[in-house]
Structures are given as C-alpha cells and as structure tokens.
Simulated assay, not measured.
Amino acid sequence: MPRIPLITADQSTAEQRDLLEQTRRQLGRVPNLYAALAAGPAALRGYLALRDALAAGALDARLREQLALLVAHENGCEYCLAAHTLRGRRMGMSDEELAGVRQACAAEAHPHAVLRVARQVIRSGGRLTDDQLAEARENGMTDGELAETVAHVALNILSNYYNHLARPDLDFPSAPAVPDADDRPADAPERSARHQRNGSLNWREGATVALADGYHLTDGTGEAVSRLSDVRVAFEGGFAHVAVPGVDAVQVVSAPAVQVVVLRA
C-alpha cells in the first residue's frame, strides 16, 4: 500500500502541475513514482534535471537503460526493475540480455566495463581499487564516462530509495526473477551468473576455458577459479555457457570475459 499519496493535477500546486505536465509530455503518462516524488517538487525537479542532463551525455540510451536496470537489481527495487525491464524490451533487448545486465554482464567489452564499474561503485561506495580502475580504462572507458557512470548510479539510487520509502503501486508489468541472483556482500569475490542447464545449446565437450583477470567460475569443489579443463561449453547471444562436472547449474559469463577457449578436436 502506498505510504505517500500520489500528487494529482486537481490536488497540486502550480509548481507540481508544471512538473507533472513536463513528465506527461516526455513519457506519455505520469508513472506513480513521479506522482509520488512530486510531493517534494524540488526533489522531482532535481531528478528530472539530472536525468535530462545525462541523456545528453556520452552514454547512449541503451546503456543508460541497462545502468538503470542494474542499479535497480542491486538495490532490490521492484518498481524500477519492472519499469526498466519493460523499457529494455521495447529497445529490443532479449530476456537473456536483460538477465545478463542484472548481473553486470554485456556482450561487448565497453558496455560490460561500464556495468561492472557501476556495480563496483554501488558495492564499494565508490572505492574502486587501482586495478579495477585500470581495467575499466583498458576496456575503453574515458574519465568522462567514469564520471557519468557514477552520476547514473546516483540518479537511480534516488528513484530506488524513494520507491522503497513511498511504496507507490506498481504500474508496470512485474519483472521476472533472475535465477540464482547474485546477492553476495560487497567484499565477496565476483562470480559469474549461474543459470539452469539448457539442453537446446550447441555444446562442445572436453573444453578448457580461461577467463580474464577478475572473473571466476566455480569448480566441482565449490572453489572460485579462473581456469577450468574438461568442461562443456556453448556460446549463444554473446554469452559463454559453461557446464562443470559436479556443479548442477550452468555458469554463464559474457563473451568478453573469456580469454581462451581450447576445444577438443
């Protein structure tokens, strides 16, 4: 049940009506989040101003939407997960791609780096290590993009946290759950997303897989390792699916995270 009433056109100040009309012109309607945030006109005006400023920045619309989805996932914001899943689908993102984004995975190196930096910022409070920053730059992130990524995290934390506080009714289709969602604490080693076995993939037997620095798979003993031998591997949709003996779930990493794959002849 909503804990902060929605501001409507007939129960609003002139400033609130102006902000709601601005939202309606841009989005075609006024989502409940915006109607709730209008309770504090300065907050809504600031949110819209930062959002519009970032829309004119270096990161394209697709990546901005992916960042919003990732931040919502990290913060467990049901409302924003629903909104940005819908928008991502309308941009042509598949369900597999959307699930990968929520685990900070993308098929191409640059957006993958941006998503990883965003997650590192959230989990560390912005305290990235020198190695993490160097890795981001090696994958093409400029200083301007680093600044904008932090700004996108801040923008979406604002909407996530306010949703947690206000609890507006959900006016978007619910987002699907992501299997085995990564809910480890910020200081835990990063591991790949894991999904259930998919028999429709084109599997290759007896492969050796080595990942780039900072990426890990789980071996049959439960240890995080960067190299595995005698595994099954399949590639689809920009992701590598790795089936490890003794591990029930297929492990999925984005293709740019894979440094070497040796296939049995």
Rank of each mutant, 00 (worst) to 15 (best):
E97N: 10
L98S: 13
G100W: 15
V101G: 04
A104L: 07
H110V: 03
P111F: 06
P111D: 08
V117N: 10
V121Q: 06
V121N: 03
R123T: 09
R123Q: 08
G126A: 04
R127F: 12
D130Q: 12
Q132S: 03
A134P: 05
A134D: 06
E138S: 03
N139A: 00
G140P: 01
M141C: 00
G144S: 01
L146V: 01
E148Q: 06
T149S: 06
H152W: 11
H152K: 10
V153C: 09
S159C: 01
Y161K: 13
Y162N: 06
Y162T: 03
N163C: 02
N163Y: 04
L165S: 11
L165M: 14
D169Q: 10
D171Y: 10
F172I: 14
A175F: 12
A175W: 07
D180Q: 07
D182N: 11
P185M: 13
D187Q: 09
P189F: 06
P189D: 10
R191S: 12
S192V: 13
R194S: 09
R194F: 11
Q196P: 09
R197I: 06
L201D: 00
R204Y: 12
E205C: 07
G206Q: 12
V209I: 14
V209Q: 14
A210D: 10
A212R: 15
A212G: 04
Y215P: 00
Y215E: 05
